[in-house]
């Protein structure tokens, strides 16, 4: 209960701060020195936040579609041949540091939002794919057996039984991927993508702690809110499956 209240307050504060950053200048004033500005004004914080979230959303939606699609593919009879390979690639691929993926996308894509988007997409694939695989391959055999016994076709089994059962796990994968993407997008500003990292880096370059703090605060709050939001969705999905299964 207290946790939910705190989350609500955090969300409220975030919205208020983004809509009117200047009214919070007093909060960041103590962190500045030599009369440096307390609020980042080069680009409006709101537009940076929106473009940051836009990048993350675009990448996560794309990775979700591709990863869930691939996950379904390799668990069907036609794609089973790829399953061991797919497992190895996801476990090895996740050891690749996101920052390195971002840096390596630059030679291919040039600077700007492009490499960030590609890195976010590629890195976001893995957790979702892994969780889709786990969700689709570790289903209680009696349930799938029952579905088959009811005379459901393969397609019906997939849509009405297997995917709903795997949904909480898939959502957990999307949550992981969204949180990682949010962090990686921050670093995307080093390759000239328009994200909140710009504020933090501007603060680091000009030793203006206020900038670092407000950039960090906004990204941190966004991450926590997204994380908690997905977790609420997951437990709701799991609860529904739990009652539906019984």
């Amino acid at each position: 209960m207290i946790a939910r209240l705190l989350l609500g307050l955090a969300a409220l504060f975030l919205v208020a701060f983004l809509l009117s950053p200047d009214s919070f200048a007093w909060l960041f004033r103590p962190l500045t020195s030599n009369n440096a500005p307390a609020i980042y004004t080069q680009t409006s914080l709101l537009s940076l936040t929106l473009s940051h979230l836009g990048l993350v959303a675009l990448a996560v939606i794309a990775s979700t579609i591709v990863a869930v699609g691939l996950g379904i593919l390799v668990t069907r009879p036609a794609g089973r041949e790829f399953l061991p390979l797919a497992r190895t690639i996801t476990s090895v691929g996740q050891t690749f540091p996101p920052v390195a993926v971002l840096a390596l996308a630059v030679p291919v894509m040039g600077f700007g939002a492009g490499p960030t988007l590609v890195a976010l997409f590629l890195y976001g694939l893995l957790p979702i794919f892994e969780n889709t695989l786990t969700g689709l391959t570790s289903q209680p055999p009696d349930v799938t057996e029952a579905a088959r016994g009811m005379g459901l076709t393969r397609r019906q089994r997939l849509w009405q039984v297997e995917l709903p059962l795997a949904l909480p796990l898939i959502l957990a994968g999307i949550r992981l991927s969204a949180v990682i993407s949010l962090a990686t997008a921050t670093i995307g500003s080093t390759v000239a993508a328009k994200t909140l990292g710009e504020v933090i880096i501007a603060g680091l370059l000009s030793s203006n702690t206020a900038f670092v703090a407000q950039g960090g605060l906004v990204v941190g709050l966004l991450a926590i809110l997204i994380y908690e939001g997905f977790q609420a969705l997951e437990s709701r999905g799991a609860r529904r499956m739990g009652t539906a299964g019984r």
Binding site: V179, T186, G216, G220
Partner: peptide
């Protein structure tokens, strides 16, 4: 959950 750049910066 706090993004790395933010934590490093702070």
């Amino acid at each position: 959950t706090i993004p790395s750049l933010a934590l490093f910066g702070i």
